[in-house]
Amino acid sequence: MMTMLGGEPFLLVSKQEQQNYPLYIRSVPSDSELKFHYTVHTSLDVVEEKVSAVGKVIVDQRELYLGLLYPTEDYKVYGYVTNSKVKFVIVVDSSNTSLRDNEIRSMFRKLHNSFTDVMCNPFYNPGDPIQSKVFDSMVSSMMVQTC
């Protein structure tokens, strides 16, 4: 069970930091989607905190993976942010032990690659919700693997 999304890079759209809005959300099962919305929405606090912390502490600038954002009773929430400040969040069931840091990391990398392709589609307007079939199927295949 997981949810993913890209967040709007607030640097592009507005000076306000609360400009984040979802570009893409997928969850299994889809009936509890609103719950994921809340989970992911609140996790952005941590993402922002971590992103702003990057400036303070000297961290490897090329490290985009933010790691475990926070654990809740039911889920583990992981984050990833591109240098253009697009955020990816993956939520997994906390009982799922097969997914370790490395697996999550590679999932993010795959998402990032696929997202880059979406951005390169001349018919996609940056900032619009993602409706790419290719991206869809990539996410689906990733979700099947992990479940």
């Binding site: 392709d117 390169c120 589609n121 018919f123 790419s132």
Partner: peptide
């Protein structure tokens, strides 16, 4: 056509 996905309205 690398990356290209035609939207439905085209």
């Amino acid at each position: 056509v690398d990356f290209v996905e035609l939207p439905d309205n085209h």
